[in-house]
């Protein structure tokens, strides 16, 4: 199996699908000739040409609106919004148009549209370029939200998103772009909506995504040295949310910690906690705990940014507390 970076997995996924399906077009700001600000899409323009791969003006609303119009008339667009922090600029198009178009038309249209954006803290980008966007987008039926954590998942889930007949927002964590992993280029694309148990364990369930997943795994390694065996679940898609996998795990471990990079209030972790409280309360031997960024903003200064994002030590501490 070839190894590649998370960044290359994005390029490979787009190119693979574009080779198979002429109706896929790809556009965004500086994605074509320059290959993207994070150099995530080099070579796509050269391979597929200016009709299908385009640099756009700096017009986030128009990018999404155009992608929607193209999606309902026979193309399968992949649109990039660069930083997920720019999603709010295009929020009306995403939540009032893209999410509702199929519904408002009574099913006359499907919206096979993929929106990509890079998100997350840890890079010193400051408060307007470091947020996680998934929780903002979960309250809009009609959208699907994907957050891949590994090169293999980036390749598989992005391909699945492009093939999906519903609008899918794929959030790439920018701290993971250099992560290297094995990718099965011939794997059959899956349907969106399944979480994965990344590490088996019996003492406690840790649910996380992206950067926090890797920190949870780091914490699990540490805890294993003390004989504590956490089970670690990667959600992979936030919508649809795979509640069944979480409930099954909590049924075995009786304890749940949700690790989330974004602020606590209104975060996806609250929905996961509510789901388990609703349907799995009697599996639990301890309260559900959430390890989050506090309800504060991400500073530029490295010491402040590092302090606010959950790390392996904070996760370990929460696990020990819950088991004691």
């Amino acid at each position: 199996m070839p190894t590649m970076t998370y960044r290359q997995a994005v390029t490979e996924a787009i190119a693979t699908e574009m080779r198979k399906d002429d109706s896929i077009v790809f556009f965004g700001e500086d994605v074509a000739k320059a290959g993207g600000v994070f150099k995530v899409t080099p070579g796509i323009y050269e391979e597929f040409g200016p009709l299908r791969v385009r640099d756009t003006p700096i017009s986030e609303q128009a990018i999404i609106g155009a992608a929607l119009g193209a999606a309902i008339t026979g193309l399968r667009p992949v649109a990039e919004l660069m930083f997920a922090d720019f999603i709010p600029v295009a929020m009306d198009q995403i939540v009032n148009q893209v999410a509702k178009y199929r519904f408002m038309s009574g099913g006359q249209f499907t919206v096979p549209l993929t929106i990509r954006a890079s998100q997350g803290a840890g890079g010193g980008f400051g408060t307007q370029h470091s947020q996680c966007a998934e929780s903002w987008l979960m309250n809009f039926p009609g959208l699907k939200v994907v957050a891949p954590s590994t090169p293999a998942d980036m390749y598989g889930l992005l391909r699945a998103a492009i093939r999906d007949d519903d609008p899918v927002i794929v959030l790439e964590h920018k701290s993971l772009y250099n992560l290297v992993g094995e990718v099965d280029l011939n794997a059959a694309p899956e349907a969106l909506g399944t979480a994965e148990v990344i590490r088996r364990g019996e003492d406690i369930t840790l649910v996380a995504t992206q950067q926090m997943l890797h920190r949870a795994l780091e914490a699990a390694d540490k805890l294993a040295e003390e004989g504590i065996k956490p089970e670690v679940i990667d959600l992979r898609t936030l919508v649809p949310l795979d509640g069944a996998t979480i409930l099954r795990s909590v049924q075995r471990t009786s304890r749940l910690i949700i690790v989330e990079e974004a602020p606590r209030l209104g975060g996806w972790g609250a929905s996961v906690a509510a789901l388990v409280a609703d349907e799995g309360l009697f599996y639990l031997d301890a309260p559900i705990k959430r390890v989050n960024m506090e309800n504060a903003l991400i500073a530029y200064s490295p010491v402040l940014e590092d302090e606010i994002i959950p790390n392996a030590q904070k996760i370990e501490k929460a696990v020990r507390q819950l088991l004691s």
Binding site: L51, G69, A71, T73, Q97
Partner: peptide
């Protein structure tokens, strides 16, 4: 029903016409 939101959607349809 969102003032102005229909403009880029038609633009996307025009993009489809151009690409195809």
């Amino acid at each position: 029903a969102i003032v102005g939101a229909q403009l880029p959607i038609a633009m996307g349809a025009a993009l489809t016409a151009q690409v195809k």
